[in-house]
Design a protein around this nucleic acid. Structure first.
Lengths: 179, 179
DNA sequence: GTCTATAACCTGATAGAC
DNA sequence: GTCTATCAGGTTATAGAC
């Protein structure tokens, strides 16, 4: 999570886990196989919540916006390294894992996607999804830059993110009403 | 750019550049030193345009929003790997390079920052900057996921980004007016 | 400046004793 | 299951001839 696949030594993993290098290989067979387990787990952590919120037919569009912003900001405040890890590893060696997640199906048949389409039939729903996730996830991806830009220590950064839980749903609603 | 520092072999760099491994070391002394040159260059490419647009006292807030969206979408369409490279390397080994860029000074004394502050004295201007850059840069960082989610081939993705040049400034204006 | 050859070290993986 | 020792191959960097 901290250094990515290529920069991480199996020796270091074994040491931090309090076991032997040989034993690590005994359990996981290879660095590559261990990585796939971790990577699948982390992709599920990053995208599982999204999945369950967007496909819920019982919630309104407005409620989904609230849930998504709150869920991601809470989860990423606890796991700030998660998105940059997943996204950079997808670039490096895990294009095949993206397919496994059946994203097109998940998103395009979701209640959320349809609600966006009904609300704004003139705009591709992906635009709103991108802006929502960009506003929510990107600050964690570019955290060192934003902390430097805003002179924010860790605590002030977290406070700013907390404020965004209310701002983001309000802003997406404003976007949906903007012709 | 394609694989990041740790996964890249100096042998491959030499070969792709059409010269010898020994000669590469003769010119750049070490992999680390070569990396710092590339990394500084890429950070400038990612952030130099932002810098010159935000500090221009002669343009209105609205004009800056247009310029920023257009500049980034054009530049990232030509260099889609740039942001994920820079952001993941900052995490890995280049925290010290962030300081060198004097971000706090650049942003907080910029014309853009002040215009945002005048427009909305009740909201930290960083919120708008984060949402603007998140909406603009994040789709390129998470491109494989969004392409999968939206069933978008390369061309359709580029078209979607092109549409965002007009949508994003309009949306940020809407956000600024939302109480 | 440019190359070949090689040093010196690192890394993933396994053999084999317990 | 667990460990020590080690192999086999890869990687950065340099020595030294031209």
């Amino acid at each position: 999570m901290k250094k990515g696949y290529a920069a991480t030594r199996t020796r270091d993993i074994a040491e931090e886990a309090g076991l032997n290098l040989a034993l690590l290989n005994y359990y996981f067979r290879s660095k590559e196989k261990l990585f796939e387990i971790i990577m699948t787990e982390k992709m599920e952590k990053l995208l599982g919540g999204l999945s369950s919120i967007v496909k819920d037919d019982a919630t309104t569009l407005e409620k989904k916006l609230e849930l998504l912003a709150t869920y991601y900001i809470d989860m990423l405040t606890q796991n700030p390294d998660l998105p940059i890890f997943v996204l950079s590893e997808i670039r490096n060696n895990s294009d095949h894992l993206v397919e496994k997640f059946q994203f097109a199906n998940l998103i395009q048949h979701s209640s959320f996607f349809k609600q966006l389409q009904v609300n704004r039939p003139d705009v591709n729903p992906m635009h709103f999804i991108i802006s929502l996730l960009g506003s929510t996830i990107f600050p964690f991806v570019a955290r060192p830059l934003f902390q430097a830009a805003g002179n924010l220590n860790q605590k002030n950064f977290d406070i700013l993110m907390e404020e965004r839980k209310k701002l983001i749903p309000k802003w997406i609603r404003a976007m949906l009403q903007t012709k």
